[in-house]
């Protein structure tokens, strides 16, 4: 149907106005959505309350001739993949290869297969890395760790050198202060920081 000029012009102008409004709403909504997503990704998890010296009662054996590095992770958390990648990066950059443990949480009631996920296999593929199952998170509790991706570095004497995450955001690989600090410490250099935020899934359910 062909409208008279003024009628079609009216509808055209109305359409254009609605288009502008819809576009504006769309842009705002999209920006808001992305902001929420970014905020979530960059929200750090609960920090560690790691003992300043190597704790007694742990099943882990500390190396005395080199530093010992422990990374505690949730086997199903997607953020762990980034942490493992950063760990691999840090180990590759370090001149002194620490004794390294990657502990995967295995809550009660979950099978070994659940704990030994592809992340387990990824960690196991790293050279000189011991992958250990942390049943019920006992070691995590012993080391005061509550968030997947928490990394602890102890020196040869058992003193805590570093505690924090080695990713910049949840599930995000890339340069970050945590990895850089660990590499510095392993290379006998001064680290930029000795503690960083950790980005990952909580290791324990609420209330546990």
């Amino acid at each position: 149907m062909r409208f008279p000029f003024h009628v079609s012009a009216f509808f055209e102008s109305k359409t254009r106005a609605w288009l502008w409004i819809a576009t504006a709403v769309w842009l705002i909504a999209t920006a808001a959505g992305l902001s929420v997503l970014w905020a979530w990704d960059n929200a750090p998890g609960e920090g560690a309350t790691a003992p300043r010296t190597w704790p007694t009662g742990t099943a882990l054996v500390r190396a005395t001739e080199k530093p010992t590095l422990i990374l505690l992770a949730h086997p199903q958390c997607t953020c762990t993949r980034a942490s493992l990648a950063e760990l691999a990066e840090a180990l590759a950059r370090a001149t002194v290869r620490p004794k390294t443990y990657v502990l995967f949480l295995k809550p009660e009631g979950f099978s070994d297969e659940w704990a030994q996920s592809d992340l387990w296999r990824t960690a196991a593929a790293l050279p000189d890395v011991s992958v250990i199952r942390d049943d019920s998170g006992s070691e995590a509790r012993r080391f005061g760790v509550a968030t997947s991706g928490q990394t602890l570095l102890y020196d040869e004497g058992g003193d805590l050198l570093f505690a924090g995450g080695i990713t910049g955001a949840r599930a995000h690989q890339g340069d970050n202060d945590g990895r850089r600090s660990i590499v510095a410490l392993l290379n006998r250099q001064s680290p930029a920081r000795r503690a960083t935020h950790v980005f990952g899934c909580p290791l324990f359910s609420a209330g546990l």
Partner: peptide, 28 residues
């Protein structure tokens, strides 16, 4: 495929990335 679930210890929920892919991806 990559991040279907977000975990908190032994409990899981749909990962925010799935919601983002569905809702935000759809919006965009």
């Amino acid at each position: 495929w990559v991040s279907p679930l977000a975990w908190a210890g032994s409990t899981s929920s749909t990962h925010i990335h799935v919601w983002a892919a569905v809702v935000l991806g759809g919006l965009i």
